[in-house]
Design a protein around this nucleic acid. Structure first.
Lengths: 198, 198
DNA sequence: CACTTGCATGCATGCAGCCTGTATGTTTCC
DNA sequence: GGAAACATACAGGCTGCATGCATGCAAGTG
């Protein structure tokens, strides 16, 4: 009689190990922040050793980057799923923002993407991640609204950055207990303001 | 003949040591970030030992908090100094924002207050610091503009938070090489938009 | 009003525990 | 047989604390 040998392909092993590591890391990073989390507790929770971790990730930072990347992708997917693509580009923009806030309501996302992310990975890296995922939606929405003449013509990258920051803070405020309706109304006012101005 | 005995009162000693520590710490935190800076290098640069550090600060975090607090106060002082208090509350708001960006151009401030600050001290703590210093100016300016009927009536705290986030990001963008004029124009457009909207 | 006596404050040194990253083995796949 | 996946062992560094020493300081004493 022989113990179930649990034979797996290398690809499966890698995928499973990486998934276990990022999942465990995510829990700790969310609960205790990146800095206060040690790799020993991560690997213990994931059921592997530190050797496996450093085999798959060059660094503790690289592990965090993987977690953040997945989180940003999940946010973008949430927005994409809810994307209405209505006629009015202004309303589409606002709806997209609502979808973003809904997606960011998932526990831990604000900490990962808005607090620790910039500090651990640097503004540049987190901007690049954002540009590929969530921030892209906003930039495209703004672009469309400008092309349609619905809002004032202004430098796209700049406005996407400034409005994106407002949306990020909005997510943080809601996460901190601030009234969600008020925050959303404020954001809508900001957007509509860009439409009216000469 | 006796060696200059360097006799100092305890108050003076404390002030000098704390100043040396926070100054040295600021340099490293700015150059290498909070996480990558060790207390040994800080105390070496300050010319004291780790014993002195832990005598004056409960924690490495507490030392960072002292640095951030001083930085925020310096920013607020810069704004206060440049405060125009013109007739038009809208223009006053925009001018105040320009003063904020000028103050934030001082090297290291974006990293201390906008990147590491929130991650190390937490959003709550950094908000509280901001509320006492720089953010106060914005909130008061908005309040005045609303009372004067110059901009749309909206929840004050909420709008101060959202606009404050845009200004923070603006400082980061400029620090990152983004064109300052464009960013300032974008911010002005956001503010003026609030004036026009119904 | 000197003076010393006792205590608190400021600071240095040494230690314990933990953590990161790497180097080196061992097992599993291919 | 070789490479990939993983485990184990080790070196260096860092944080926070506990302990020890010196100096300022306030109160009492003669």
């Amino acid at each position: 009689m022989q113990v179930k040998s649990e034979r797996r392909s290398n690809r499966d092993r890698t995928a499973a190990t990486r998934a276990a590591l990022t999942a465990a890391a995510r829990r700790f990073f969310v609960a205790k922040s990146y800095g206060a989390t040690g790799t020993p507790e991560i690997v213990a929770a994931a059921g592997v050793t530190r050797g496996a971790l450093y085999h798959h990730f060059s660094d503790k930072r690289a592990l965090f980057a993987a977690v953040a990347e997945a989180e940003a992708a999940a946010v973008a997917a949430g927005i994409e799923r809810a994307a209405p693509q209505g006629r009015d580009p202004i309303e589409a923009l606002i709806k997209g923002g609502e979808a973003f806030l809904d997606a960011m309501a998932e526990p831990g996302r604000t900490r990962l993407l808005l607090l620790d992310g910039p500090a651990v990975l640097g503004r540049g890296k987190i901007d690049e991640i954002d540009a590929r995922h969530g921030g892209r939606t906003l930039r495209e929405g703004l672009d469309e609204a400008m092309r349609a003449g619905a809002i004032r013509e202004l430098p796209l990258e700049t406005m996407a950055g400034l409005l994106g920051a407002a949306y990020d803070r909005a997510a943080l405020m809601i996460d901190g207990g601030h009234d969600s309706g008020e925050v959303r109304a404020g954001l809508a006012a900001l957007i509509r303001g860009l439409a009216g101005a000469r």
